[in-house]
Design a protein around this nucleic acid. Sequence first.
DNA 1: AAATCACTCATACTTTCGGGTGATTTCACT
DNA 2: AGTGAAATCACCCGAAAGTATGAGTGATTT
Lengths: 139, 139
Amino acid sequence: MKRSYLLYGVVAGVLLVVLQAVQYKTMIRDMRLELYAGVIAILFMIIGVVVGLQFVKRKSTNAVDSTKANQLNLSERELEVLHLLADGYSNQEIADKLFVSLNTIKTHISKLYQKLNVSRRTQAVQKARDLAILIPPKG
Amino acid sequence: MKRSYLLYGVVAGVLLVVLQAVQYKTMIRDMRLELYAGVIAILFMIIGVVVGLQFVKRKSTNAVDSTKANQLNLSERELEVLHLLADGYSNQEIADKLFVSLNTIKTHISKLYQKLNVSRRTQAVQKARDLAILIPPKG
DNA sequence: AAATCACTCATACTTTCGGGTGATTTCACT
DNA sequence: AGTGAAATCACCCGAAAGTATGAGTGATTT
């Protein structure tokens, strides 16, 4: 989560810098301010849409009851992984989403299984629901 | 949908004009281009987020449709397998429980995935819940 | 009788999972 | 300063899952 925000910030900054550079180099005479503003607006609107989609995706799926999670000593990262696991993502997809390697995800999931006392991902999801760690979106 | 796009376009245009007006009136000397670009970027990123939220909201509300479960034409056997699947059983365990071969279960699951338009068992469970094919235990 | 469908099973193949082990780094606690 | 938990990543290996294709049987429909 924290990484996501950081990423978006970095992307935003880089884009601004790039726009500046481009502007000073070649377009300062040809490009009017309106057009410049328009380009920025469109770019960041696209970014905003992406951010918004990411945001809602997490909220619209499974919620996490962090209180009960703490009783099992599940770490934050493990909860994140569990969340994505329950959403049906593969290990590789989870790795991509969290910007870590596949091996790391495997480790997280392995520990998750130990703490939940299961040996398969479907069981993990099942158990997490039973323990109200994962709360379905609706009813 | 088309109206939405039009609306956003209009809003974007109006905002641009407003920004222009403000810029020419009071800020042309004080405000540097970087800051100006930054303001536009932030504003439109916010707009983008809002757009993104709207977008997903509609999709997620349409997702739950009890009639869709029937339209999928899931056979009895496939439903049986789906239930056991959701309970966290492995293919081999499902095969044993239903007194058929592992390959048969694979075939059933394969067709199940096609009908549910998924490619993994966790996704199948997730989707089945969304479509109210699977009803979570307890309440 | 022919066509269709659900169910069954098989072979062969690729991909993903999960277990085991070990290592490094960071950070909080004492 | 040492301890321990958490997070990161790596390598190996076997098991499970999933894909593709084909095929046989019984029941139902046309």
